[in-house]
Computed example of a mutant assay.
Amino acid sequence: MTSGSTVPLRRWLPRPLRETPSRIFCLPYSGAGASMFGRWPDVAGDTGLCPVQLPGRENRLREPHFGTYEQLAKDVVEALLPAMDRPFGLFGHCSSALIAFEIAVVLHREGLPMPRRLFCSSQVAPHEGPGGSYLTMTDEQLRAELVALSTNELDDTVLDVVTEVLRADVEANKAYKPAEPVLLDTAITAIGWSADHEVAPERMSGWDQYSKRVHRVVLPGVHHTFLDAPAALLTQFVDGMVSDD
């Protein structure tokens, strides 16, 4: 498997890096690429928002799938460490919150700079999963879900490819089962959404076991409201990157 360091940084970070005082690296959820953050601004206050492109999708379609969250986290750290040269955070929604967490675990284990904050949206704590409707769907159901979520009409060839990527991502999610919580020296903002029927906000209390500094917040919206970069979410980013509480 290709290691993170052998792939140019621009492949991992398709948006040009801004010289902002801080950065948040944003991980796409299952089946998606960095373009899912297309409606997000480049910055939130003084913090650059940096969508991460994972292998096996979009402009990295010809690369092999990352395999497991553990391997992906190692590759991300290896590739993005030069860009972690200032206060930074990690954002993940649903399955990608687990990827963000595993990246923090690798940084912690290797004694590397830690994120100032993890922003974990619509995801139960790692030891309480895996969970979510995708995990029990057939390929046909996953395909239908992609059609429902897409803002553009997808032809059958593209749908075949994206469904294959989504299936591999789902299998990686199902295989990720940490044995017990890891207490991290970083703050965590656990973001629930008031009308989220996929992951109800009250199911996210388990994140308290991963940090002594957990801020739980419920924002107005449904499971996919975050895609529109609502002001309430951007405010969490701005406030979270200037506070360690």
Rank of each mutant, 00 (worst) to 15 (best):
R216N: 11
V52W: 08
R213V: 03
S194K: 09
R167K: 14
G92E: 07
R11D: 07
D46K: 15
L154R: 12
G67R: 12
E78K: 10
D42F: 06
V161H: 08
P28R: 05
V77D: 05
V158E: 13
W193A: 10
D244R: 11
L142V: 04
G240A: 03
Q53N: 07
Q71K: 14
T157S: 07
A232S: 15
T186A: 14
A97W: 00
C50D: 13
I188N: 00
T138Q: 02
L159C: 01
V124Y: 02
V77N: 03
V170K: 07
F101V: 06
G221N: 05
G67F: 15
A231I: 11
D208N: 11
K212I: 02
D228T: 08
T138A: 02
V158H: 10
S194W: 06
G31K: 07
S121K: 11
D85F: 01
A229P: 00
Y69S: 07
E171K: 15
R213D: 04
E58M: 07
A232H: 12
L72I: 00
L90V: 10
P8A: 04
A229C: 01
V162Y: 09
P220M: 10
Q209Y: 10
T68M: 08
R213S: 02
L90Q: 10
R117M: 07
A175K: 11
N59L: 13
V165W: 13
D139Q: 05
V105T: 14
A175L: 11
L219Q: 04
M241L: 12
R109E: 12
V238G: 01
Q71S: 14
Y29D: 04
K174N: 07
S95T: 14
E171G: 01
V76Y: 05
P201V: 08
